[in-house]
Amino acid sequence: MNQEKIINVKNLTKTFGSFTAVKSISFDVNQGEIFGFLGANGAGKTTAMKMLIGISKPTSGEAVVAGFDVKTQSEMVKKSIGYMSQKFSMYDDLTIKENITFFGGIYGLSRIQIKEKTAELIYELGLEEVADKLVSALPLGWKQKLSFSVALLHEPKIVFLDEPTGGVDPITRRQFWEMIYAEAHKGTTIFVTTHYMDEAEYCDRVSIMVEGSIEALDSPKNLKKQYNVTSMNDVFLKLARNVE
């Protein structure tokens, strides 16, 4: 394959005292790919992701994200990526406009850029009428859509989504995935975690972490073939069963 690798992970390890949360994982993510990062609760997903976005130092091993070493160039990594999670999305007590302006500033956009981006984003999401309302007034699904757009404000090459659709209603969940598809189509790499196994099917490739190691990594189609089952849910159950 001659595709550009946007993430390159080699023997990445993180230990907390005597506990090894991430055990020497290695994988690549291609430019423009939708990469699903799955695993049971406590499997080490969050720890691994924190290292990739430059907020946790690896104990050993290497990771290069968007061309920058997460150990020595973590500030550059942070500038080159977008990040959103279910837990931290927006400031509830700021308006939609204020949130966009705030994050635009954080990402280092100029005043003019922020103004343009704000108008563009509000129009694209159809939020004209509520732009000056507090974010807390938005339904969760809309918050998540807005939060995703904000994570893309500085046009990062890669965006990390940590359980972006948890608790979101079924229609909005699909609209959210259509936004993901559209963004991937533009060439942005998507790195996403989810507990919805139907969403695992939407990914180009999926990795499954079990007790700190990557136990499987392939396209959903190949994984189903390999484990001789008909859904990603069954693949997951086969791999992660009986592990606490």
């Binding site: 049971a40 609760n41 948890g166 608790g167 507990h195 849910n233 997951f236 992660a240 069963r241």
Partner: peptide, 13 residues
């Protein structure tokens, strides 16, 4: 009330 929200498929089952 939502005992399985945010819980992985294995634990949910």
């Amino acid at each position: 009330d939502e005992p399985t929200t945010g819980v992985d498929p294995v634990s949910r089952k």
